[in-house]
Nucleic acid binder design. Sequence first.
DNA 1: CGACAGCTGTTCGGTACCGCACATTGCCAG
DNA 2: CTGGCAATGTGCGGTACCGAACAGCTGTCG
Lengths: 284, 284
Amino acid sequence: MRLRFNGWVYGSAHPRRVDKRTLCSNEATGQIHHVRREQRDPLSIEKHTAENSLIAALPPRCRANVLRSCEQVELQLEEVLCEPGQRIRHVYFPIEGFVSLVAVLDDGGALEVGIIGREGMVGASVILGVDTLADRAVVQCAGAALRMSSASFRRLCARNMALRMRVGLYLYASMAQLAQVAACTGYHVVEARLVRWLLMSRDRAHKNEFHLTHEFLAYMLGVRRVGITEAATALQARGLITYNRGDITILDNAGLEKASCDCYERGNLIYDAAMGLSCARSAR
Amino acid sequence: MRLRFNGWVYGSAHPRRVDKRTLCSNEATGQIHHVRREQRDPLSIEKHTAENSLIAALPPRCRANVLRSCEQVELQLEEVLCEPGQRIRHVYFPIEGFVSLVAVLDDGGALEVGIIGREGMVGASVILGVDTLADRAVVQCAGAALRMSSASFRRLCARNMALRMRVGLYLYASMAQLAQVAACTGYHVVEARLVRWLLMSRDRAHKNEFHLTHEFLAYMLGVRRVGITEAATALQARGLITYNRGDITILDNAGLEKASCDCYERGNLIYDAAMGLSCARSAR
DNA sequence: CGACAGCTGTTCGGTACCGCACATTGCCAG
DNA sequence: CTGGCAATGTGCGGTACCGAACAGCTGTCG
């Protein structure tokens, strides 16, 4: 069985031992249809700036420069911002929604390797001098975001040290988390990984409920849908979550955090260490 | 059972379902003992420059600058260049040997997430403004390398656009490969992953034999030693490799490449695409 | 030469996840 | 109201890998 998400297709689960599979070609090449609002008045945008922490942490003048180049867009659920290897046209600073980075294998396998909410940005690797993204970027939770053409972003970074530093640190944190997630995938059972994933989503959604089908979760974690169903059922039985046709609600945050593998907490530590270091640095 | 590598300890395999494990504290804190040769005369170093492709690709003046700041060291087998989170004091440009990056989990699990030979460098993330490494860097194959203090490296990068660009691209390639490996770990059977690993090592060792015990391989791939033994036995039975007490010899390169998962080839493509892009760029 | 340590091979019971197939439930459009 | 579809639940046999334990085999060192 295969699923379609706004035009792109993926295998339900994947072969651990099947060798090849030819699918995952984007029929109709995932229409990327932004609901582009007209440019807001500066005040309205300014209001939002504090809500992407990457931007918020910039010195005022620099922040103003960044904002001038941004427009606000509404990210659509399951919209694909960029396919792996494709030229990235815009970088995104999520405000409400969040985005997942998904590594795609030739044989149709896929695995989430990063998750980007208002604490970060999509396309940070542009500062490395490339204009492609290594992974597929899928919107996981709809909502507002700021965006900027990658050319503008590169120009701004070239001129602005504070911005470049900040983005660099974020990139480092992303890499560290990527490694962490890789190890986690190999070592921890589906249930623990599911919990980690729910907690990370919660942190980025800033609320205790979000819309996610088992099928989608399975795709993200690289397991069968049934595996998710089993794990989710167990969590529900323990009173940690409830869900109903894709609407998941977290009931017991503390309990969930206990049920998760260390990787959740560790991921947060990694981020704090990297980004906090920047504070120490700029305070010097 | 636990192993000791030059002073640091790791769990033999690891728990897929065990939740915690307290080990992996480095007893005796992995003595890092470089066999530091006295500074060679410039000609001798110059001779080697072409052998690290990152350096070799730099414009002549820039290359000379880099070399002036480098000293040559001999990497010892299983030496730990840097522990995760530790301050990185030197960056390394391997010439003969190669180095693995290993993600370490709290519960003792570990997984190789990158491999660095003469095509790259250890510590590229320094250009992002951090002075720590996210993963453990272990020497996998002894041999010569150039090294430079990370402070010098940062200074050079700040001044030198070509160097910064080149290292940036390399960093991007590393990230892309990391994501690739993460997915591979989740989807492919041990044997295929082992083969991928052997091929990658071969490419970096520039020869068809190297010294690696099953135990070490198991550690790298995050599986039990027995898993490696079984896979290796099968490969040997098929006439693709032979091995004897840690000395592995590749007999049939073509056969091995067929036995590997696509991730091997794909990793190479990723690297070429990223680094080749730089050529196009500088040719402009 | 004998003891020992490091490396490899083998076995065994257990389990997490696989692919596949099918049943159930709730929502929505016609 | 009804048929259809998306989302979820369940059951079954298979397999890749796990932990543990033990049995050679070989080189080294006292």
